[in-house]
Amino acid sequence: MLRKRIIFALIYSDGFFMQSRNFRLQKVGNLNWLEKNYKFQNIAFSLDELVVLNATRQNKSITGFAKTIENLVNDVFIPIAAGGGIRSVEDAELLFKSGADKIVLNTALHTNPELVEALVKKYGSQSIVASIDYKKNDGNFEVYINDGGTKIDLNLEDYLNYLERLEVGEIYLNSIEQDGTGFGYDFDTIEKFESKIKIPLIIAGGAGNESHFMDGLKYKNVSAVATANLFNFIGDGLPKARLKLIESGENLANWNVNN
C-alpha cells in the first residue's frame, strides 16, 4: 500500500535556519548549530522527506543555498526537495547537482511558465514540487508569490487548474495565516480543495503536535503532512510523533531493519 508521508521543511535564510511565523522569520541557527543541538541526522531517520526552502528576502543567492544543500545531504538517506529563488534551468541544475532530488518552485510558477515547462521536460514531473502560499480573505482564497509579498490575480482554484496544465508533480499547499502558529492545519481550505487536486498533495502551515498530523492524514487526498516548526518538533519530537502515529495505525512506512 502506498504510504502517507511526514515531511519536515527547513526554512533557510542567508546561511541560517529560521523559525517562520506568518512568514516573519526568526533566526534559529546554522547547519552546525542544528547538527550539534538537534542531531539532525537522527531526526532524518524518522522523516519521509525533507524540504529546504530558501526564504532569504533580499539578494537570494542560489550558490550559498546550494552549498548548504550539499552539506545537508551527507548521511541523510531521504529525498530532499529544495527551492526558493529558482529563476533559470541553471539554478535548478545547480540544486540537483548539490544533492536535491526534487526542486520546489513558487514565484516562477506564476511569472515564468516557460521555465516550468522546460524543467518538467528536462527532469520529469515527479521532480517538480509546486509550492503555493495562500491566505483566506472574506471567502476568497488569495495566492501570494515572492515569499508571501505579492498577491497574484488568480484565486486558488484557478491557480490549481493552471498548475495542473503545467504538469507539475506535487502541490505543497501552505497557509500563510497558519504558518508557524502550531494551531493546526487550515482544514476549511483543505476540505474545499483536496478532492480537486489530481496530483500528490502536501499540506503545510500550522502543525504543532502529532494530533495535527493525524488530523491531516485522515483526508483521502492528502498524501503528506509537512511542518516547518523547529521549536515544536526538533529534538526527539519528531521520532516520538512518528512512533505514536505508527502505533495508532496510521499508514506510514516502517524502517525497522538492522544493518
Binding site: 504510504r3 502517507k4 487526498n221 498524501s223 512506512a253
Partner: peptide
C-alpha cells in the same frame, strides 16, 4: 494520483539475494 510518490510496500521472494534480511512488504521510496 500520478506520479506515484512515496514509500510503498513490495511483495518479495524469500529466496531473493537483493532482499536478504529484509522482510516481505518492506517499504521503499
Amino acid at each position: 494520483k500520478v506520479p506515484h510518490v512515496g514509500f510503498n510496500q513490495l511483495k518479495t521472494d524469500s529466496e531473493s539475494k537483493l532482499y536478504a534480511g529484509l522482510p516481505n512488504e518492506s517499504d521503499f521510496y
